Simulated scan of single mutants.
Amino acid sequence: MQIPKDPTTGGLSRGDIREQSRRVFEGLKESMREAGGSLRDVTLVQVFLISAADWSAMNEVWAEYFTEAPFPERATIVAKELARPEMLIEIVAFAYVEAA
């Protein structure tokens, strides 16, 4: 699971949906690197948004990170609220990384 953490402070990003989307995808990229993989190993992403109006902006940021096929499957869920009121997005990602 990735939430929009600010890498400088370690706290939550309070930016707009584009900024928060970048934070979650950067966090996912770092988690994949630590596991010995990359974003190319991601097979499924569940995106939770609090507003359907944020989908286009989130999708623009998504396209900056997932640039080559095969692309992961994606489900986008609009939720009434997330765990923290300042969060506009949260993701859950599934990946397959072969053991070294």
Rank of each mutant, 00 (worst) to 15 (best):
A93Q: 01
I50S: 04
S56C: 09
A93N: 05
G11E: 12
I91G: 01
T43R: 12
A53R: 13
F25A: 07
V47N: 01
V42A: 08
V97W: 13
V92R: 03
E26F: 06
A35M: 07
N59V: 05
I3D: 03
G27S: 14
A83N: 08
R40L: 09
R40W: 02
A95P: 04
V61P: 05
Y65Q: 11
A79W: 05
V78N: 05
F25S: 03
T76F: 04
A99G: 10
E34N: 11
P72T: 03
P7Y: 06
D16W: 02
I89L: 09
D6T: 03
Q46S: 08
F25V: 01
V92K: 02
A83G: 11
S21T: 09
F48H: 05
D41F: 01
S51K: 15
R84L: 09
L44F: 15
W55H: 15
L88T: 03
G27F: 03
E60P: 08
R18K: 14
V24W: 03
E30V: 11
M87G: 00
L44D: 13
S51F: 12
M87R: 05
I50E: 01
R33H: 12
D54T: 03
R14G: 07
D41I: 02
W55S: 11
T76S: 07
A95R: 05
R23N: 07
Q2I: 04
K5I: 13
Q20H: 10
E90A: 13
S13R: 01
M87L: 07
V45W: 01
R40F: 04
Y96N: 11
A52Q: 13
E34G: 07
A75L: 11
P85I: 00
A75I: 15
K29Y: 08
R40A: 14
T8M: 12
R40S: 13
